[in-house]
Design a protein around this nucleic acid. Structure first.
Lengths: 138, 138
DNA sequence: ACCATTTTAGTACTTTAGTATGAGGCCTAA
DNA sequence: TTAGGCCTCATACTAAAGTACTAAAATGGT
């Protein structure tokens, strides 16, 4: 949110600077208007690219900093979290059961609880949400 | 491929038209240079947005470091890749079909092909592999 | 125009995933 | 001791996901 404001501020400032530069150089007559137009076009093309990417991607602050508090905040238990991690590794319920030495039924229970707590309908959606919440490494 | 060429052609033509319009109106003196600059800025901002959205897979490689060559190397087609991206967003086959305007059957076909090409047994595993191969954003 | 690939879509199945519910054992705080 | 989580497991479902074909268009390059 704050980033967007900053970006737009920078954008407006850039516009003003370009305009002032254009005015001066035109009066001085040492720079063509073509160059001015090309510069503006290029700058805003880049800004458009940049803005679009920043808005479409989740802001990945990263540094491997997982938000442990958020896990507790969501009421996700230790065992459930272990299952979540294994899901992110692409394992099936059966495989997770074998890895954690529990039955497939137990895994299913954990997965069901996870889906509720992460407000997801599928395990893939749970993964996406968990990554956005920064509770599992991406 | 051809789309990119067309888009860039349109871009160049737009630039030329804007330049011509700017020249005329400046000579005629009935339009301010401020308006011209604002127009150009706006147009190229939009073009930047549009380009980044449409050709995201060709343009994201500088920022996100996606390995485009590896996608082709694995023989993953354009449509299959689109499906893969939607899977990573946690959508079901049905939802992907609705989003891409194809039937669920078609999505299943694409997914099956993806699983073979990514050497995965499940969509979650495909996701994990795709991320390791850097063909989808983390 | 021709050939190769891609995209689309279907049927018929098998396999996972996920839901709902109940229940026993374990541990901890009141 | 009792109430409340948590972990475990089971049964019986329903719902997705995935497989294995077949096949018709459309797309694209030579």
């Amino acid at each position: 949110m704050k980033k967007t404001i900053l970006v737009f501020s920078a954008l407006i400032i850039a516009l003003l600077i370009l305009f002032q530069l254009g005015k001066y150089s035109f009066i001085a007559g040492d720079t063509s208007i073509e160059f001015l137009i090309a510069s503006i076009a290029l700058v805003f093309l880049v800004i458009g690219f940049y803005l679009n990417r920043k808005n479409s991607k989740n802001l990945v602050l990263d540094g491997e900093g997982l938000d442990i508090d958020k896990i507790k905040e969501l009421g996700i238990s230790e065992r459930e979290y272990e299952v979540l991690v294994e899901i992110s590794k692409g394992l099936s319920n059966k495989e997770i059961g074998e890895k954690l030495f529990v039955s497939e039924s137990t895994v299913k229970t954990h997965v069901s609880n996870l889906l509720v707590k992460l407000d997801a309908k599928r395990r893939t959606q749970a993964l996406q949400r968990a990554k956005k919440l920064r509770i599992i490494p991406h």
